[in-house]
Design a protein around this nucleic acid. Sequence first.
DNA 1: TCGTATTAGTTCTATGGTGAACTTATTCGG
DNA 2: CCGAATAAGTTCACCATAGAACTAATACGA
Lengths: 399, 399
Amino acid sequence: MNRIELKSLLADSALATPSGRIVRALSERGALSATQIARLTGLAKSTVSTALTELRRSQMVVESGSESAGGVGRPATALTLNPRAGTCIGILIGSTEIQVILADVAHTVLSDKTINLEIDYSPQTAIQHVQRLIAEAYEGQWQRQNGLLGVGIAVGGPVNPVTGTVLRAGGMPTWAGVDMRELFGPIFPDVPIFCDNESNCSAIAEMTWGAARGHDDFVVYTLDLGIGGAIVAGGRVLRGIAGGAGEFGHVVIDPQGPPCRCGNRGCIEVYASFRAPMAEAERHFGRALRLTDVVEMALGGDALCRALIARTGEAGGHGLGLIGSVFNPTLVVVSGRLAMAGDILMKPLAESFERFTLVKHGDVPDLARTILRPSQFSDNGACMGAVGLVLRHHGRLVN
Amino acid sequence: MNRIELKSLLADSALATPSGRIVRALSERGALSATQIARLTGLAKSTVSTALTELRRSQMVVESGSESAGGVGRPATALTLNPRAGTCIGILIGSTEIQVILADVAHTVLSDKTINLEIDYSPQTAIQHVQRLIAEAYEGQWQRQNGLLGVGIAVGGPVNPVTGTVLRAGGMPTWAGVDMRELFGPIFPDVPIFCDNESNCSAIAEMTWGAARGHDDFVVYTLDLGIGGAIVAGGRVLRGIAGGAGEFGHVVIDPQGPPCRCGNRGCIEVYASFRAPMAEAERHFGRALRLTDVVEMALGGDALCRALIARTGEAGGHGLGLIGSVFNPTLVVVSGRLAMAGDILMKPLAESFERFTLVKHGDVPDLARTILRPSQFSDNGACMGAVGLVLRHHGRLVN
DNA sequence: TCGTATTAGTTCTATGGTGAACTTATTCGG
DNA sequence: CCGAATAAGTTCACCATAGAACTAATACGA
């Protein structure tokens, strides 16, 4: 029905108009009152009001019950995008996993499925799994796949912002040079496909719904099997000319160090990735483990797991200190599955960060110091960011 | 006369109005035609036209002769800010030098003077020299000091963006904790004082008048006695929460390396600063030298000087490669006095950069590769940036 | 020398967004 | 139970900006 209309309102050119900005605010935040929209978008109440009458008339926006909770004064009427307006799909193509999230335009998650794969799986394998996962996701939903508004793809490696092509330099050699839109296009006829780096997607998720809500300038630092990150400046995710911005893992800190899978030597990732600790844990326990198992055991009190995570935190702090010296960011959101370990990771990370960064404790008042904060997403941050990519129409692959 | 009016037009709130944007464009670029202003500011021709009649009426903007140079069609009338509207002063407080530039609102340099000082000179010494240099600068000018619109100060170390205070971590220990506005305020009663890091000032100069004109996203990498830099994203100079963004020189690349003056060990600056090469050159030639002397001798063909600069370029490339992996910038402007050496510096720098950065030659098409370009300013980039600070009213010390 | 092409700059009108004033809906205190 | 206080949301006049149509000033070719 109004699917085409919503699509056009989510398009770039329309983002500047009041209606476009309202739709965008709603798709990012879920439910809002008219007054909240005015504050958030910076538009005048009157402008929001007139635009909203139009949007209500066209069924684009619906009232979702007035919340009279607390406070005096007339209660605000909560507004959401009409969930019937369509769905979004977020796909994560990770090095050893594929995740698919189905969400409505109010970013309510309708389905969230993950499968684990052997490393270096082929694009063909991926496409089969994605197709199956999406079919499963729509099962039991009243939403139909022809209401699909857009697909966001989070890729576990640097993506060229212009062509949508995966770069050789990434941690996924079998995907080198693959054009994601060409690959996934046939599965989603006439549906716009956006894609971006996994970490950049995490940044979008953190910014809109996570630990960085309300922040316009921050850094995401991902500690997982690989090291990654993203830089947000002025509310914009920096991509770099070849989509390679935020590759914190492949900063060379020792030209004579051990070789890294990226081709250089002595990258941060060689020292702070959780690959080696995983192997050590598996040797110790004599069985195959998932990263989350190790985190859970650490939280349960296991000494080895705690030590492994702490050691990674310390090594990761060197990289983060370097980022601190380069950016001196207001906020660093630590993401990746290791972030779920909480203080076991964060304490040694913060200590090591303090040691390697330029601006030290005594140099400035506390409120001028970088805040380190773990991510609020357990393990679906990047994939939710892919959904966000669609909702904010941010993933045009060009800035 | 219209001094107050111009001041208010340069103020923040007014920057958004057409008149403000026109004044800003003119103060940044010098002379422009109405059509150029329209293109530059994004305003409609008609809007520019109406605003200009008003600005002309109030003597704020004057015509500076129509340039019928080349091309068919009606020749454009060049417009400039009325130089009688006032002057700006840019001050550079470097580690071993003080520079003062006097410019009119059309950023025409009226006077440019530098003095060299012993390292670790005191703020009191500085203030005396500055006062004298400014008095000298106004000598022989018809402009009077009471027409001073603002003072910009470029400081050779990180500056706290909120308080205007120099941080301990900088390369100027005697200036730790000094509040620049408090220090210089008494010399300039009722004149707004802006200050920022030397490198950030260079970035502003490069962006408005230099090698980065037209670029909204780039990195400045300064190679001189110290290593510094600045990050520009979306036309905004990133400052970081404590003004410490862009401190590329103090990235730790070897925790066991030699101690650095910043307190850490194995910073980039230890390896790529031109301090040690300067000492070597002085030993070799048996006399005191200035950095520019070494550059000139290298350009003249001296083998040792060429080798020293090339070696620094190679070491600097490691740092730059690191920055490349973190940002993957579109453009890197190499500044600092070493940049005057041209290819002697740039060739080894580019080679080393290529080796250490993540995105390599074969990975992406040529137009998706980072451009390295030397600065166009000989040695007054930072100080001109300080002037720009006043003109763009960018140095509010808060973003 | 005159008309045409081309570019610069101006005038006029339509409009979209704002701010002020207003209406509506609720809580709270007497 | 009623009015004051408070906050949400609506209406409307005004004005800044943009776009189209216009005039102005030049080069160039016939």
